[in-house]
Design a binder for these strands. Structure first.
Lengths: 187, 187
DNA sequence: GTCTATAGTGCGATAGAC
DNA sequence: GTCTATCGCACTATAGAC
């Protein structure tokens, strides 16, 4: 019992379940741990704080974003590079994942503290993308502008993707939102 | 002594002072309160949590942003409206305020929890600006794109404004960053 | 103003994997 | 035996309830 594998994943699943039914603040870290046969102390061994249990594992997503970025042709413009990154990132959210993403987001949308954490992760993503663009030779403030714009486009596209009744793929939506961004600059 | 006015402002000043010298986490809410002759309970009567003491009063800034937005000519494009809002917002940071802004930002930059709060406030700003744009008849996702872009431009300009050795006004910097954003769409 | 629950930390002990 | 995940306990600070 003590040595069952996948402690982290079990904690994450149990936490999401409890947050969805009881609410984030009405769920204690002790309850989450106990619900999978662990102690509160072990919860904090895996997650630096209570909110992090919902965000741990985002590195994969960041890596996808950066991967698409590196795959962009060398002569691509900053925004074209961002378009590649968006395509690559969108691939990490196939349509089967929509129900799960919806559930997770509905928990986040109900709690300001979780929104703060989400926005912080997004900001970190933009910082990493900007750094990667600078390595490609893009100067400031263009690199940061392009990176933040990419994060914004992804955020808007993702929100639309999980909306009830939406059927388009995330990549399709993101590409359309990016097109709208281009239009913004020339009315 | 007990009813000395300006309790909130004194708490904010003392908190910034203590955070800057000792660090945010090394300062307790009780210490802040006692340093101005109040109790911890009173601190939490004025601020919903420890971090908020650094952010309380941002409404003025939001109002400045929205004020510039309403002052924009009716036929202006979304990005032109955002440009007006940026001008108006920049006016709330005259050059005399640079030293204070620098000190405050250096505290925030040293602590992830404070960065989360700052990003959350920024996100709230973008939401309000997007809503105001929709009222003006701008559709989605353009309204949100323009609003988030405005927030991004302001953030980049502000970071540059408080950099050591920078002498240009915030409005000048913001206008140049906005120009870069326009260039992003057409290479 | 007082009291209490919860989050989160530090350290040492323990139990299983190898 | 070593290594590492888990546990137990004592503790502080935040924040909210009363």
């Amino acid at each position: 019992m003590r040595w069952e594998p996948g402690a982290r994943e079990r904690l994450q699943a149990a936490a999401l379940e409890l947050f969805a039914t009881r609410g984030f603040e009405q769920t204690t870290t002790a309850e989450i741990a106990q619900s999978v046969g662990l102690t509160e102390r072990t919860f904090f061994r895996h997650f630096s704080d209570k909110r992090e249990v919902l965000f741990y594992g985002q590195d994969q997503f960041l890596q996808a974003f950066l991967g698409g970025l590196h795959a962009a042709p060398p002569n691509a413009s900053p925004l074209e590079v961002v378009a590649c990154a968006l395509d690559s990132a969108a691939a990490f959210f196939p349509d089967e994942r929509r129900p799960y993403s919806r559930m997770r987001q509905s928990v986040i949308d109900k709690n300001p503290a979780l929104q703060e954490r989400e926005q912080h992760k997004f900001a970190g993503l933009a910082v990493a993308v900007a750094e990667a663009l600078r390595v490609r030779g893009v100067g400031e403030p263009t690199a940061t502008l392009a990176a933040e714009s990419g994060a914004t486009v992804f955020g808007i596209a993702f929100a639309q993707w999980i909306r009830e009744g939406e059927e388009r793929s995330l990549a399709d939506i993101a590409s359309q939102v990016l097109h709208e961004l281009r239009n913004l600059a020339r009315p």
